[in-house]
Design a protein around this nucleic acid. Structure first.
Length: 426
RNA sequence: GGAGCGUUGGCAGAGUGGUAAUGCAGCGGAUUGCUAAUCCGUCAUCGUGUUAAAGCGAUGCAGAGGUUCGAGUCCUCUACGCUCCGCCA
């Protein structure tokens, strides 16, 4: 959510910025509505004042005067109620507009309309050279007895996965490596529910923007969370933190659920795009200060780069352009890992600075030490690691001629010291 | 699933239907100077006002309704928490 006062003071800049995000809200109409609401507020408050004055005078009024005062107060009350109803209708209309406003992208973000405008900042790691014909991750799973892909779709439907033997432990080992790394960086590891009430979805900006991505269970009025960010972003909602508590650093681990409604036909086989997956998420609450949140944005990015480096997976860093960013975002970097079988880089991480856009929605504030004022916090999020998707580049980049898969040194302690896994080295 | 008790500012904690005490912490100011203390103000949101403030006013006691001239207080529903019973990995 944006600040209406900021919008009024920087109208042209806001209109320009929203155009880049593809937002069609009429800012002029919105400002007019806001001014109208304020006028209504002023007049209804004058009524309330008079009503309060009368009510408070009753106690000390003489018995003869009372009926008169009561009648007058009652009449005022009815008029007040009428104005309140009008005010509520207009306020709701205004709130809905505000909830639909995306964040304003950073002036430093690349300008562009879609993913073709994204900019590769750097490529890290050497692409593997195979002296044999490399296999894709599905072949590797089949020859190592690592999955039950055919059977599980019969039981659980399409876009589900079941992995077994070393691969099932590898999935958890990678999360442990990432959780340990985040803990060492001062993050609080926290395992959170995948169930959520509706309000956090508005708080995060999932609603009203991408409702068809979300599983909903009407009998319990609960949603299945697509990311731990959902819960972490609302965990401190409505609180006023002390600045001394900042930054709040969470490493959230949770099963994640996505309907993938818009992805029909894409990545239908294998582990790239599934309805349920495991994700360790980095989440930061920091001061309302761009220099501060941009510092954390870089820090989050460097942590996830380190994860891919530890896993010895070649990757590229993308600076996401204005048109390809999600509504909540001020600035976004994606990491894409090299997938040999597809001969391209595929997204594994998404690192975003949300500034105070989410905090305004969740009413997450802190008291600034310097001036004692209450301010909206900045929030940031980044993937720590998401599996099974990350297993795809992992298996494919580290595959050997005999189908076994090499375990990078940093991960070996989490895999019982094994240097290779697969059928041929059991 | 059943029963009982709760939910008041950042925190703690009062509050017979008649203008939300007080303490602690934070911030601002004053004053005194033995490692800090004391005093005053401020300390949730909004409107109005202002360069900015002050000031004035409205709202705010988990949430939504209701009764009343007037609700933190009475009534209804909901959410959450605690205790107990039942069920359970």
């Amino acid at each position: 959510m944006l600040d209406i006062k900021y919008i009024m003071e920087n109208k042209d800049y806001v209109i320009e910025g929203l155009k880049k995000q593809g937002c069609k809200i009429d800012i002029n109409a919105m400002i007019d509505l806001y001014l109208e609401i304020n006028k209504l507020k002023t007049s209804s408050q004058a009524l309330a004042e008079e009503k309060n004055r009368l009510s408070n005078s009753i106690k000390s009024a003489s018995p003869e005067d009372r009926p008169q005062i009561i009648a007058k107060s009652k009449a005022l009350g009815e008029e007040f109620k009428k104005q309140q109803e009008e005010l509520e209708t207009k306020q709701e209309e205004f709130n809905n507009m505000m909830l639909r406003m995306p964040n304003l992208p950073s002036p430093d973000a690349p300008q562009g309309e879609d993913e073709s405008g994204n900019v590769v900042i750097r490529r890290v790691g050497e692409l593997p050279k195979f002296d044999f014909t490399p296999r894709d991750h599905i072949e590797l799973m089949e020859m190592n007895d690592w999955s039950e892909m055919d059977r599980i779709t019969k039981v659980c439907g399409s876009r589900t996965y079941a992995i077994k033997n070393e691969l099932s432990r590898l999935e958890l080992a990678i999360h442990m490596l990432v959780l340990d790394k985040l803990a060492a960086n001062g993050f609080t590891t926290i395992n959170v529910p995948s169930l959520s009430k509706e309000k956090p979805l508005y708080g995060m900006g999932y609603l009203p923007f991408s409702s068809d991505e979300i599983y909903y269970m009407p009998s319990d009025e609960l949603y299945l969370s697509g990311t731990a960010e959902l819960v972490l972003n609302s965990l401190r909602a409505d609180e006023i933190l002390s600045e001394n508590e900042l930054p709040v650093l969470y490493a959230g681990f949770s099963p994640c659920f996505r309907r993938e409604a818009g992805a029909a036909g894409k990545d239908t086989r294998g582990l790239v795009r599934v309805h349920q997956f495991l994700k360790t998420e980095q989440f930061v609450i920091c001061k309302n200060d761009l220099a501060e949140s941009e510092k954390w944005h870089q820090k989050l990015l460097s942590i996830s780069e380190e994860v891919l480096q530890d896993l010895e997976i070649p990757y590229q860093v993308l600076d996401i352009c204005t048109g390809d960013m999600g509504a909540p975002k001020y600035r976004q970097y994606d990491l894409e890992a090299w997938v040999p079988s597809q001969n391209c880089y595929r997204e594994t991480h998404s690192c975003s600075n949300i500034t105070d856009w989410q905090a305004r929605r969740t009413n997450l504030r802190y008291r600034d030490n310097a001036d004692g004022k209450v301010k909206y916090a900045h929030t940031l999020n980044n993937t720590g690691i998401a599996t099974p998707r990350a297993l795809v580049p992992f298996m494919e980049n580290h595959q050997q001629k005999d189908g076994t898969v090499r375990i990078p040194e940093k991960l070996q302690p989490y895999m019982g010291g094994k240097k290779f896994i697969g059928k041929n080295c059991r």
